[in-house]
Measured scan of single mutants.
Amino acid sequence: SGWQYDTQCSLAGVGIEMGDWQEVWDENTGCYYYWNTQTNEVTWELPQYLATQVQGLQHYQP
């Protein structure tokens, strides 16, 4: 899939279920990364769990 979410945008106002994931701001890069509080996994790309929800939002315009 060529769909890419801009990680400089916060998910805070989007209104999706974050589940075990937390969004963390990284000052050095000026982007958010994502931290799974259960598994301690850290990812710079939007986790599939969140990406599926964001893509499903009608009002979200990339």
Rank of each mutant, 00 (worst) to 15 (best):
Y5E: 08
Q53E: 02
Y49N: 09
D26R: 03
G2C: 06
G2H: 15
W3F: 15
G56T: 13
P62V: 04
Q58R: 07
T29N: 11
P47C: 00
T39R: 06
D6C: 05
S1V: 11
V24M: 05
N40A: 11
V54C: 09
T43R: 07
W25L: 10
Y5W: 08
C9Y: 10
Q48M: 14
V42G: 11
C31F: 14
Y32G: 01
A51H: 06
A51L: 06
W44I: 03
M18A: 01
V54D: 02
G56Y: 04
Q53F: 02
T43N: 07
L57S: 11
Q55H: 03
L46G: 01
T7H: 06
E41A: 10
S10A: 07
G2Q: 13
A12T: 04
D26I: 02
G13I: 04
Q38N: 07
L46P: 04
P62N: 15
L11G: 01
W35Q: 15
Y60W: 11
C31S: 13
D6G: 09
Y33T: 05
T39Y: 02
W25Q: 10
G19K: 08
Q55W: 13
Y49F: 13
L50S: 02
Q53G: 01
Y60D: 15
Q61H: 07
N40L: 11
E23C: 00
L57Y: 06
Q61F: 07
Y33D: 01
Q48P: 15
Y33F: 06
V54A: 05
Q38A: 10
Q58S: 10
G15R: 11
G13Q: 08
P47N: 05
G56E: 15
D26G: 05
Q58W: 04
T7C: 13
P62L: 12
A51G: 05
Q8K: 15
L11Q: 00
S1L: 03
E45P: 03
Y5V: 03
E17M: 04
T37L: 09
Q55C: 14
N36C: 07
Y34L: 01
G19D: 05
N40R: 09
L11A: 01
D20A: 06
E45Q: 13
E17Q: 12
T52G: 13
S1M: 15
I16F: 08
V54G: 03
N40W: 05
T43K: 09
Y34C: 00
W35G: 06
V24A: 04
Q8W: 04
Y34W: 04
T39N: 10
W3G: 06
E45I: 10
V54L: 10
G13D: 11
Y32I: 06
W21Q: 01
Y34D: 00
Y33H: 09
Q48F: 06
V14Q: 14
L50R: 00
W44R: 13
T43L: 10
G2T: 15
G19Y: 00
Y33R: 08
D20W: 09
Y49M: 10
N40V: 03
E27G: 11
Q55N: 08
E45Y: 03
D20C: 09
L50T: 01
Q61V: 09
Q22C: 04
T39M: 05
Y32M: 03
D20Y: 08
N36V: 00
Y5R: 08
Q4A: 04
A51W: 08
G2M: 15
G56F: 04
A12E: 07
Y34M: 00
Q38H: 12
T7R: 11
V54E: 01
T37W: 06
S10G: 09
I16E: 03
L46E: 03
C31K: 13
Y60I: 15
G13C: 10
D26N: 11
V54F: 08
L11D: 04
G15Q: 14
G13F: 10
L57F: 13
Q8I: 04
Q4W: 07
Q4Y: 08
V24R: 09
E27W: 02
V14S: 09
G2A: 12
L50E: 03
S1C: 11
D26P: 00
G30R: 14
Y32Q: 00
G13L: 08
E17V: 07
Q61A: 14
Q22A: 10
D6R: 09
E41S: 05
Y34F: 08
G19T: 01
T7G: 11
E45V: 06
T52Q: 08
A12H: 08
H59P: 10
L57P: 11
T7S: 12
E27S: 08
Y32H: 09
Q8G: 14
T7V: 07
Q4M: 15
L11S: 03
A51Q: 03
